[in-house]
Every structure is written in C-alpha cells, then in structure tokens.
C-alpha cells in the first residue's frame, strides 16, 4: 500500500466516526420523521394508522399555522437584513478606532455568549408596562406615553425581534471584523494614493471583498431567524406566542403541536414544511449571492 493510500484510509476512518454520529442522530430521525408525518401518530395512542397526506392538508389548512409562517417570514425578512447591515456598520466603526477596540468588541459579543433564556427574561422585564418596566419608566421620565411592547399584537413581534437582533449582532460583528482584517492593506493604500475618497474605498474595495462573508452571514442569519424559538417561548405570556398568536413562530407551532397536543404526526409534517421553506430560501440565496461573489 502506498503512503498516499494509507493516509487516505486514515482520513476515511476519522471521517467515518462523525458520519456514524450524523446518520444516527440527524439523518436517521429525519427519515423516521418523514415516515411518521404520513401517520396519525399521537404519543397517547398505542397504535397509529397511515393517513397519506392528510396531516399536510390539516397543517396547511390551519389558520394558526398560516399566521405562524407569516410571523416567521417577518422575523427572517426584517431580522436578517437589519442584523447584517448593523453589524457591518459596527464592525467598520470598530475597525476604525485605535483605543478600546477589545472592550467594545467584548461589549458587542456579550449578548451572544449569554444564554438566550436569561437574555429573553431580562428583556421581558424591561418591556413591562409601568411601574415595573425599565423602558417605560424611562419613557415616562421623558414625558413620553407608555408602550405596551410585548402586550400589543402590533408591537410584540418587533419587540422580540429586537432582542434577537441584539443577540445575533455579537456573532455577526465578530465575523465581519475578522473579514475586514483579511482585506489586503496595500489595495486600500494604493487606492488612497490614487486619490480615492474614503467612501469610494468602502464601496469599491471593502464591500466587494467582504461579499463572501456577507453571503455566509446572510444564509446563517436567514436560517437562524426562520427557526426562531427561544426568545418567543420565553418572552410571550405562558410561552403561547401571543398576544393573539402575533409572535408565534413556525418552530413554536411545531413544539406546541408535538408536546402540548402530542400530535406527533401533524408536528412532523409541519416541520417538514418548515424544512422545505428553509431549503428553498437558502438555495435562492446561494444563487443570488453566487453571481455577486464572482469577482
């Protein structure tokens, strides 16, 4: 056996272990779930029957699921672009300062490394109506009217989304900062010598070179917001995704179907629908950004 072959075998052996793990805890259950989505499997029932596509019809015909999907779209379509734009701006600013860079970076990354449950509850209390909520106390001190925030169906989703954005920014800023540091300084210097303005440097050098990272973050954050669960679960009263289902995400809908109604078959079909949506969205993003990153 040649050395190259031996090396290849070693590599395959090492790769096989995670593969077994992946098949066991990811693909296996996923295939099982696909099968179960076609049955009336309920945790409380001892036997179950084949239903065909009836679960999918029931889920798609459920107005609450429609609402949850619309909310999910809102989380992703509003959340992902904002978090990316804000993070990019913050990263560029952070890159420009000489002193206290480490401190600022730490401040931005802190929400991301804090458990989301704790973050959600602290924000939930800050959002409370007077006399308890910090934000409303501030508004009151400034003579402004109080806001219902998470108790108003029009404001609740965005109040929760704000927390999601605040948390995700820590991650995105870090990645952007790393990306900015990989941009060759000589390109920028050459441009400056040629008389390019700062905004021209940003538009023509920094932003295009950051495109692959922006692409990566757009996909990651898109997925992140499409499956948002923890902040919604912890910030809505009794984890119901209220008021009036206005904050319920698809992931929370699936959780409730599976673990409070015990309708596992129906929950499985709902998660397959969410899976399909995430896949399509990601594929579209890949196509869109693929053209942009070919420079």
């Amino acid at each position: 056996m040649t050395l190259a072959k031996k090396r290849a075998i070693t590599a395959y052996v090492f790769l096989a272990l995670p593969l077994v793990f992946f098949i066991g805890v990811r693909f296996g259950p996923m295939l099982y779930m696909m099968g179960r989505s076609l049955t009336d499997w309920s945790l409380l029932r001892k036997s179950n029957q084949f239903l065909g596509l009836a679960n999918f019809a029931a889920v798609l015909g459920d107005p609450v699921f429609g609402k949850a999907m619309a909310n999910t779209a809102r989380y992703a379509l509003v959340g992902a672009p904002i978090v990316i734009a804000l993070s990019l701006a913050v990263a560029l600013l952070l890159n420009g300062i000489a002193r206290g860079k480490g401190l600022f970076r730490l401040i931005y990354v802190l929400p991301y490394i804090t458990p989301v449950v704790a973050v959600s509850w602290v924000w939930r209390w800050m959002y409370q109506s007077p006399p308890m909520g910090l934000i409303n106390r501030l508004l009151g001190a400034l003579g402004l009217p109080a806001h219902a925030f998470i108790n108003n169906p029009k404001e609740a989703l965005y109040s929760i989304l704000g927390v999601g954005i605040w948390v995700e920014m820590g991650y995105c800023v870090t990645i952007f900062l790393a990306g900015i540091q990989t941009i060759p300084q000589d390109c920028i210097e050459a441009a400056r010598i040629d008389g390019a303005s700062e905004s021209r440097v940003l538009r023509s050098i920094i932003l295009p070179l950051l495109m692959p990272i922006t692409f990566f973050l757009a996909i990651m954050e898109g997925i992140q917001f499409l499956r948002i669960f923890t902040p919604v679960y912890n910030m809505s009263s009794q984890a119901m995704g209220g008021p009036l289902d206005s904050t319920k995400s698809a992931a929370l809908y699936i959780y409730q179907t599976a673990f409070t109604k015990f309708e596992m078959g129906r929950a499985a079909s709902a998660s397959l629908i969410l899976f399909a949506v995430i896949m399509v969205v990601t594929l579209v993003q890949v196509r869109f950004f693929d053209k942009k990153t070919n420079y």
């Binding site: 003579g143 009217p145 109080a146």
Partner: peptide, 17 residues
C-alpha cells in the same frame, strides 16, 4: 395612575391565563 394616566397600582388583577 401616574401623571400620564398609566395604571401603577391595580385595584383588581385581571389575568385570563
């Protein structure tokens, strides 16, 4: 109520859930 008319002490708590 406070100056802005916000309830700061509930006479009777109303909690349907």
């Amino acid at each position: 109520y406070d100056a802005q008319g916000n309830l700061v002490q509930a006479g009777l708590a109303m909690q349907p859930n």
